[in-house]
Amino acid sequence: MLALDPVAARLFLPFAALIGLYVSWTDLRGMRIPNASVILLALVFVILGPFVLPLDTYGMRLLHLVVMLLAGMAATAARMMGAGDAKFIAAAAPFFALSDISAVMMLLAACMLAAFATHRAAKHSPLRRLAPDWESWDRGREFPMGTALSTTLTLYLALAAFG
């Protein structure tokens, strides 16, 4: 059982899922996660969070955003990840309960494997013709992590809401 309150998860889920779909599409299409989508995701938490979380929990979750933004900046500077991925991780961080970190890491690992395998399989199949100009097809070893990251957030909220 996840620590995130099911009521909070049900409120956050539709917004996070829609933003996540957009992030996945833009990352697959152009290997970019738009700043507007990251800001919108953060605003969903900032605006709705106080209505469904205790204020002390809400404040600590906002701290998650700051800590992950700083960590993401360091990882981007070290060329470990793209800036869009780092910003998305920071914007998504407040939605996760810290006590769920083990479950979140397992979910992220599964989403990364599934997204990578699906992307690579589609890249070398006739499905590629449906979107022949997607930049992610031709980026060599680079991978559009926005797909795995947004899927992790959406699945986590869905599991907390209905699991």
Results as ranks from 00 to 15, higher is better:
A115S: 15
P34Y: 06
L113A: 15
A86I: 01
R129P: 00
P126H: 15
L28T: 03
L107V: 02
T26Y: 14
G72A: 07
F88C: 00
I101C: 07
F88T: 01
G72D: 06
I89F: 05
R29I: 01
R29K: 14
D133V: 09
I47M: 15
R32Q: 10
A91K: 01
Y22L: 14
L62D: 03
D100H: 03
P34E: 04
G84N: 06
L130K: 09
G84Q: 07
T57V: 13
G49V: 03
K123W: 01
A42Y: 04
S24A: 15
H124S: 14
A86C: 04
I89V: 15
S99P: 02
A122R: 07
V23E: 03
S99Q: 08
L130N: 01
A86E: 02
L65Q: 09
K123P: 02
I39C: 06
H119G: 03
M60K: 09
P50E: 10
D100L: 11
S24Y: 00
L108R: 02
F88W: 12
S24H: 01
L55M: 11
H64D: 03
A86R: 07
R79S: 14
M105A: 11
L43N: 13
H119A: 13
S125H: 13
A109K: 07
Y58R: 09
A131T: 08
F51N: 11
L127F: 14
M73I: 05
V38Q: 04
A114T: 13
A93K: 04
P94G: 06
I101N: 00
G59C: 05
L41C: 11
M106L: 15
T76F: 09
L130Q: 10
V38A: 11
F51I: 03
L62C: 11
L41F: 09
A75T: 06
D56S: 15
M81A: 08
A103F: 15
L98I: 07
A71K: 08
A83W: 12
A122L: 12
H64K: 06
K123S: 13
L98K: 14
M112I: 13
I89W: 02
A83D: 06
A97K: 00
S24C: 12
V38D: 04
N35W: 06
M112E: 00
W134S: 02
G72P: 00
V46D: 08
L63A: 13
V38L: 10
T118I: 04
T118E: 03
D27K: 01
P132A: 09
P132H: 15
L55R: 12
I89E: 01
A77R: 12
D133Y: 12
A114W: 01
